[in-house]
């Protein structure tokens, strides 16, 4: 399987947010005005100026045993991205797949109508696509394909001090993730990799994914669109998906 992949080992993440800032810096995204909402997580969500967001969750806590999970959220760079499938019909050229790295890239110069954006966002199982009101186009993680094309690591991976984030050829990452899962499962039977076969940003979690983030693995609403999208991701032939 060509292309690159990330391995994000949340058991090594300490929520330092070096990745969040590195992404801001590389993309020269602005800092937005925020307030303290009752969490270290800030901004509260991904946006056209925040492509990488460390999510803080205490949902894993049980009585007398606090837990604090850190989930450095970003676009999963699906192998067969549902966003591209919709964009190809409704906003042609807005989503492209880089041939070499297989990064899923939102072209900021291609305007997307608010209606089209709504559909594109709805079909993403991970709730990633965001809209830049000023440009009228979409924005998200670029996989730092400009850096990667020059043989450098994505900014977030480079900044990570603990080795929570790794980036390499997909085969290497798949192996790394499987090996680490084995190790972690010795102490944590609930540990899992999230959709390693279907996406390029593979998270290792030691608890149920929803305890980290609502959209870590799947959403809870019973709507058909995201379920369809998930199905697509695993079986691209379902929609006759083409890589253009």
């Amino acid at each position: 399987m060509p292309g690159k992949s990330f391995f994000i080992d949340t058991t090594r993440c300490t929520g330092c947010r070096g990745c969040q800032i590195a992404c801001k810096q590389w993309n020269q995204n602005p800092g937005t005005k925020t307030i303290q909402e009752g969490s270290y997580q800030n901004p509260t969500d991904l946006s056209a100026s925040t492509f990488k967001l460390v999510r803080f969750s205490e949902k894993g806590s049980t009585t007398g045993e606090p837990k604090w999970y850190f989930f450095p959220d970003q676009c999963r760079h699906c192998l067969y991205p549902p966003c591209k499938m919709v964009a190809d019909k409704m906003a042609h050229g807005a989503v492209i797949l880089d041939v070499k790295t297989r990064a899923v890239i939102f072209n900021p110069t291609v305007k997307v109508s608010p209606e089209a954006f709504k559909e594109i966002n709805a079909i993403c199982p991970f709730d990633i696509p965001r809209y830049n009101e000023d440009l009228g186009s979409m924005a998200k993680c670029t996989m730092c394909f400009d850096r990667v094309s020059e043989g450098m690591l994505p900014a977030c991976v480079k900044a990570c001090p603990t080795g929570a984030m790794s980036f390499d050829d997909r085969a290497v990452i798949r192996k790394m993730a499987d090996k680490r899962l084995d190790e972690v499962q010795k102490e944590n039977r609930r540990a899992s990799l999230i959709y390693p076969e279907a996406i390029r940003v593979i998270f290792l979690v030691k608890d149920d994914p929803e305890k980290y983030h609502l959209f870590a693995a799947k959403q809870n609403e019973t709507g058909g669109t995201r379920r369809m999208a998930l199905k697509q991701m695993f079986d691209p032939l379902v929609a006759g998906f083409k890589i253009s």
Binding site: P30, G31, T32, T34, I35, Q36, N42, P43
Partner: peptide
Amino acid sequence: LPWILEMQPQM
């Protein structure tokens, strides 16, 4: 630093 204040804005 706007990037930092964005993450931890208030007491």
